[in-house]
């Protein structure tokens, strides 16, 4: 219980620092009035807009307003459209999150398949093929593979839709693609962990107890190898969400990546601040979730170092 509280306090402190940094950084990046007003606009117009957006107040006051409102759930209004930031993010974030979850699930599936295959067929053909695929997956830019996939599956074969996010089928190309690229780094990690586990004492004892190889592999070896994959997953999921701009531009996917790009280009302070803050909250929550999952998976973490009997 104390541990959970400590974690929560830590998270709050992190978020506080993030808010300061993003507040300052975004204001250092340029003048939003540039993109909102025609350069020939009059000074009166400039002043009016500046006042309306609250940009004429001293920095400390602006920051105070930002934090105070944020705590009440109000992230301000976008400079360019005037709509509430939370509403705008709310339109785009779910799509990206769903896509990322799908990509992660596919990645985990492929990681399990390929990593296990490589470990079990160590140094044989299958292992080498997985190693090559993994290297390819990590070195090919997602963008490039995306374009190929679009050409092959979208244009030539017309199996899947290419862009937009209207139907569930629209999730397939970007989701599978992302999942494949992401799994390439995890697969080798799993392979190596699994190989170490397969040579461990408890696996040996399990075999000597007469457990068949399937049980040994899936019940004992794999479960013990999974914790690293889990940690990686959290990291990768965070990257999927915050780095989605590339995949979103190739597939014209209206997600948070595209939104953040537009917001930054327009120097839309409230929107950029809002996005970064939401990302920070997401990542902090993710790390909490990972801790919980680790504890659920491993009784040593869950129960701690209790008194030896």
């Amino acid at each position: 219980m104390k541990y959970a509280v400590k974690k929560l306090v830590q998270s709050a402190v992190i978020l506080f620092f993030v808010s300061i940094v993003i507040f300052l950084a975004v204001r250092a990046s340029g003048d939003p009035l540039q993109s909102l007003l025609d350069p020939r606009a009059s000074d009166a117009q400039r002043a009016a807009l500046s006042a309306k957006l609250g940009l004429d107040k001293p920095l400390i006051v602006q920051y105070g307003i930002f934090v105070f409102d944020a705590l009440r759930g109000d992230l301000g209004n976008s400079h360019s459209s005037g709509r509430p930031v939370l509403e705008i993010i709310g339109e785009k974030l779910p799509g990206t999150v769903v896509l990322s979850i799908m990509a992660l699930l596919i990645a985990i599936l492929f990681t399990l398949l390929l990593g296990t295959l490589a470990a079990v067929k160590k140094n044989r053909a299958a292992d080498r093929i997985v190693a090559v695929l993994s290297a390819l997956g990590q070195s090919f830019p997602v963008f490039f593979v995306g374009i190929i996939a679009v050409q092959l599956l979208g244009v030539k074969l017309r199996i899947f839709p290419i862009s937009g996010a209207d139907t569930p089928l629209h999730y397939v190309l970007p989701g599978v693609l992302l999942g494949l690229c992401v799994s390439s780094s995890m697969a080798l990690v799993l392979r190596n962990n699994l190989l170490a586990e397969l040579e461990s004492d408890h696996v040996k004892f399990a075999r000597l107890r007469g457990l068949n190889e399937r049980s040994v592999l899936f019940r004992h070896a794999l479960r013990n190898s999974f914790s690293t994959v889990l940690s990686l997953s959290a990291f990768i999921f965070a990257n999927l969400i915050t780095g989605s701009i590339v995949i979103e531009s190739v597939f014209a996917w209206p997600g948070i990546g595209e939104l953040s790009y537009q917001a930054i280009m327009k120097r839309d302070f409230p929107l950029v601040q809002g996005i970064v803050l939401i990302f920070a909250i997401l990542i902090v929550s993710l790390s909490l979730l990972t801790d919980i999952l680790h504890a659920a998976l491993d009784p040593r973490i869950r129960l701690g170092k209790e008194e030896m009997q």
Binding site: I147, V150, G154, S249, V250, A252, E258
Partner: peptide, 11 residues
Amino acid sequence: QITDESTRIAE
């Protein structure tokens, strides 16, 4: 919106 030109061509 299809920002990327190659995607526009594909569509």
